[in-house]
């Protein structure tokens, strides 16, 4: 009896630790499972609504019909996904290079900073999508116009975030560089660029989604190929299940590209984010 009563608090403490760990697992599982459950529930409602109300498939097909369509025409879907994905990637890469170069110019040239930066901010405000038809006029019906428009709408986040990253360096580090008699190109390579990397990558995350939007809008208008073309073409034929199937694949392609950028970002942040420097 005495030994048992002595052990009780100890045993309780030992049981508490795995249960705390268990609670954490449950919490992490909830983070993943709750949104999935919500999305699944919405799909169920959608399917139920379509079946009960007898909406024609031309207006709104149920998720199961969309799934069946995807299985049926997947070679077409994949074929059309290829140009969209490639052009989005190229547009994004051009935006990154161009945006970083412009940000460096802004960082080092006072005239650029004073004369150009306010205009860049102003261009941000105008609804850039309104200019899409003009890009077709200027660049023709080929990939050039889609790329140009994609770069046009996705370059700004890169410029702004890179500029912020290059200029918002810890002033103590800059003072250290001065104490070491560093030249500005050394400060740029050894301090500004590494400090800016996390900023650049958060700009890239915004930019990649905009690059895809730019290409898809280009495809809507040029109507040559790609998932955007498939969506407008099948909508025009009232083939709604195909249009929705193309939207689903577009989401998949978008998630893939976004996922790659996010993956690279987490690698970069692990090393270059300011966390715990002091």
């Amino acid at each position: 009896m005495t030994t048992a009563s002595l052990q009780t608090p100890k045993v309780a403490a030992m049981q508490k630790r795995p249960s705390a760990r268990h609670q954490m697992l449950v919490r992490q599982a909830r983070i993943v499972l709750m949104p999935l459950a919500c999305a699944f529930l919405m799909l169920v409602f959608w399917e139920a609504y379509v079946r009960i109300s007898h909406v024609p498939a031309v207006i709104l097909p149920g998720p199961l019909v969309v799934l069946a369509t995807m299985a049926e025409i997947y070679p077409t879907l994949l074929l059309q996904a290829v140009p969209t994905t490639i052009e989005s990637t190229i547009g994004f890469l051009i935006s990154c290079s161009l945006g970083i170069v412009l940000a460096v110019l802004l960082c080092y040239s006072r005239i650029w900073r004073e004369a150009v930066y306010p205009n860049l901010v102003l261009i941000q405000i105008i609804p850039k999508i309104a200019l899409a038809p003009l890009f077709i006029l200027w660049f023709g019906l080929g990939a050039e116009s889609r790329l140009a428009f994609s770069v046009f709408i996705s370059v700004f986040p890169i410029i702004v975030s890179t500029y912020e990253g290059l200029t918002n360096v810890d002033p103590n580090l800059l003072r250290l560089c001065r104490a070491c008699q560093a030249q500005e190109w050394q400060v740029f390579l050894s301090v500004r660029v590494p400090s800016a990397l996390p900023f650049i990558f958060s700009g890239m995350k915004v930019s990649i989604t905009l690059a895809i939007i730019g290409v898809v809008i280009g495809e809507f208008i040029t109507a040559q190929a790609g998932l955007g073309y498939l969506i407008v073409a099948s909508s025009a034929r009232s083939d709604t299940p195909v249009a929705l199937a193309a939207v689903v694949v577009l989401c998949g392609a978008g998630l893939l590209l976004y996922g790659i950028v996010t993956g690279l970002q987490s690698i970069v942040n692990e090393r270059y984010s300011r966390g715990g420097s002091r």
Partner: peptide
């Protein structure tokens, strides 16, 4: 700043 001087700041200011 001179090469024959070393400075230690209040904050360690290490490159993270």
């Amino acid at each position: 700043p001179r090469a024959d001087v070393g400075v230690v700041f209040q904050d360690p200011t290490l490159l993270p």
